[in-house]
């Protein structure tokens, strides 16, 4: 488990480092995620080494964004003043994503099955 955490933290540092030196618009944690995935895919890191640590981190992931979410208390006025724009945008965009991804999956997924 400690080995798993160490590797995950190492990938995070590597991702953050890459983000800083190349000035990529991709966050360091996403770069770390991609590198870890590639290391698993090409069998550079054995799956068993990171399995348990990754599971414990992702199973209750939602807990970790509570402090950031509480930060909304700083923006209550901004939300109150823009509630209609925010509401329409979020609902409209949610349907756009739901339907476009769904139809693409229905169309291309069927073709794959044949």
């Amino acid at each position: 488990m400690i080995r798993g955490f160490m590797l995950i933290l190492a990938m995070l540092s590597l991702g953050t480092f890459i983000n800083e030196i190349i000035d990529l618009p991709i966050p360091g944690n996403v770069i770390g995620m991609i590198i870890l995935f590639l290391c698993l895919y090409f069998k550079i890191i054995p799956y068993e080494w990171v399995k348990d640590a990754a599971q414990s981190l992702t199973r209750r992931m939602s807990l970790f964004f509570i402090p950031a979410g509480v930060g909304m208390m700083e923006y209550l006025d901004m939300i109150q003043n823009n509630w209609l724009m925010i509401g329409v945008t979020i609902v409209g965009s949610m349907f756009a994503v739901m339907l476009s991804a769904g139809f693409a999956g229905e169309f291309l997924g069927k073709k794959e099955d044949k």
Partner: peptide, 9 residues
């Protein structure tokens, strides 16, 4: 941060 990296798994 670490939990995003763990999504790679």
């Amino acid at each position: 941060g670490p939990s995003v990296v763990a999504l790679g798994v």
